[in-house]
């Protein structure tokens, strides 16, 4: 491949995938609890702008990420109160949250447009970083990226091995039965929703603080929607979410490199390719019988404890 460095390509693949991975992992937990929050895009962009602003104001990107997680969490709480306590429709509320987030972030970001921040330091992993090939690809990244990978394992363990995860899945599967057994359905769902918002906010901030190091309006450019799609096609399993997110990130980076290297494929087609390839692969994966039964039984259903 003329002009494309495979090591650099793989390393930037991981960076490009991390925002979607974070947001999708958050949404995975939310949907396993039976809530469909279509506001991921809105929470991501709000996290992106708040994280960037906090980084500019404090000079610390880590405080920026904390601010982004809080901002995403607050956005999610709005969604949670509307859907869980005021029993509004989850689909409509989620869409409204995305529109709200896009508008709000544009407003907050007005005074931050055009500012560029320094690249936050990578984690210095002695010895490991010097392994040929593997070192530059895997061991020269920042702490948030490793955190996202740790979350893949942590969420898998939580959902399949822990009692808390079992209760969360039970609430998503059949909220009436969970309520009859005495589990606090609304409280569990609010916790999941807030967690999902914090993850989406962190993912958004990864774009503005780590990848682009600046703020532009609408900079998440649909990453939240891709995260939503990946959760579904990954049949609500965290390992497959990782696969889907890295596939999307990988094709994104590859097509940018191909465009840069001047391949004779129409740029429009290349730009569309990450979306197309990710959807096709995940649809093929989700065709198996097991995957089709994986939908949480009460996904998107409104819970109201009647007597």
């Amino acid at each position: 491949m003329g002009g494309i460095d495979p090591i650099l390509l793989l390393a930037s693949l991981m960076v490009a995938s991390t925002p979607i991975l974070l947001a999708a992992l958050g949404e995975l937990v939310v949907e396993r609890a039976g809530v469909l929050n279509l506001g991921v895009e809105g929470m991501m962009i709000t996290g992106a702008v708040c994280g960037f602003a906090a980084t500019v104001l404090t000079g610390s990107p880590w405080l920026g990420f904390v601010a982004a997680a809080l901002a995403g969490g607050v956005m999610a709480l709005i969604f949670g109160v509307l859907t869980q306590y005021l029993l509004s429709n989850q689909v409509a509320t989620g869409l409204a949250l995305t529109l709200f987030g896009l508008g709000l972030s544009a407003l907050i970001g007005q005074s931050y447009a055009g500012i560029t921040i320094d690249r936050p330091p990578s984690l210095n992993l002695p010895l490991l970083r010097d392994i040929p090939w593997l070192g530059p690809i895997v061991f020269r990244h920042d702490v948030i990226l490793y955190l996202s990978l740790a979350m893949v394992v942590a969420i898998w363990w939580f959902l399949t091995r822990s009692r808390g995860g079992l209760i969360l899945r039970a609430v998503g599967e059949n909220h009436d039965a969970a309520h009859a057994l005495g589990y606090p359905v609304i409280a569990i769902r609010m916790a999941a929703i807030t967690f999902g918002g914090a993850m989406a906010g962190t993912g958004g901030a990864y774009i503005s603080i780590m990848r682009l190091r600046q703020w532009t309006e609408g900079m998440t450019s649909g990453a939240g929607w891709i995260a939503l799609a990946i959760v579904v096609f990954a049949s609500w399993r965290s390992g497959r979410v990782l696969l889907g997110a890295y596939l999307f990130g990988g094709v994104t980076v590859l097509q940018l490199n191909l465009q840069g290297a001047g391949f004779r494929i129409p740029a429009v087609l290349l730009s569309a390719s990450p979306y197309l390839i990710t959807i096709i692969v995940l649809v093929l994966m989700s065709l198996s019988r097991n995957a089709r039964n994986a939908t949480p039984g009460n996904l998107g259903a409104t819970f109201h404890a009647s007597n």
Partner: peptide, 9 residues
């Protein structure tokens, strides 16, 4: 009466 059970588990 109406079972408090979870089909997918």
């Amino acid at each position: 009466q109406h079972f408090s059970l979870f089909d997918a588990l």
